[in-house]
Design a binder for these strands. Structure first.
Lengths: 112, 112
DNA sequence: ACGATCGTACGACGCATTTCGTACCGACAG
DNA sequence: CTGTCGGTACGAAATGCGTCGTACGATCGT
């Protein structure tokens, strides 16, 4: 019997399982890249609600899932809220220099 | 008569215009990542036909376009063929360390 | 117990991406 | 000139992705 409800338990991939194409695809989206930059700019974990997002809660949940399932972020409950943080060590161990290079990448110089 | 043909002149973005999210999205695809690895493994430019692709010509054209328009590769005609090469210097200048980190990223360790 | 807050599940919509078949064009070999 | 080879243009199909509304669940303050 199939329960229609699948109860997506929050899945975090193991460090060794991370696929570079998944990480790149996850980062290759302006909204998610913005989230990652925001997470990088703040020490420790952030609650989801503290991220300045221009999107609805449902959409945000989707992006958090993509980031989490690609191994970029980790989530854990914090009371009635949820905390998100970068998996820096895991990413650096698996893909040395990748996250740093992405975070160092600046937007294109504007022209007047 | 056919004037529906739009004659997509091969577009190469300027180095300063490159967007990191476009580059990441382009690399976040197994086929294209494979092409980039292949290009990196060979010195200088390769003709398109020399890349070992499991896909049809039409599909290959699509991926070459994505790589070119994101600024990852450069193309130029070489007789009846076409040569593709990595825009290493431009990428390194715009996004230092990014391409190297991606190319260093190994597939996950296999388990027996 | 009640309501407010924070996030998820599900279903839906529109748009983009990936893939291909087919027709075509340009360059070269004969 | 004709054929072949390398690649593109176009159109179509399938799939995936980003977005949202709505309904729900869990947690905390009162």
């Amino acid at each position: 019997m199939r329960r229609t409800i699948v109860l997506m338990a929050t899945y975090h991939p193991d460090p060794e399982q991370l696929l570079v194409e998944d990480v790149l695809a996850a980062l290759g989206n302006p909204v998610r890249l913005g989230i990652v930059r925001e997470l990088d700019a703040s020490p420790g974990a952030r609650t989801c609600g503290s991220l300045p997002l221009e999107i609805t809660k449902a959409t945000a949940t989707h992006h958090w899932r993509v980031l989490r399932e690609s191994g970029i972020t980790r989530e854990h409950k914090a009371g009635r809220s949820k905390a998100v943080s970068l998996r820096r060590e895991d990413l650096d161990a698996r893909f040395p220099g990748l996250l740093d290079a992405v975070l160092r990448a600046t937007p294109p110089p504007r022209e007047p």
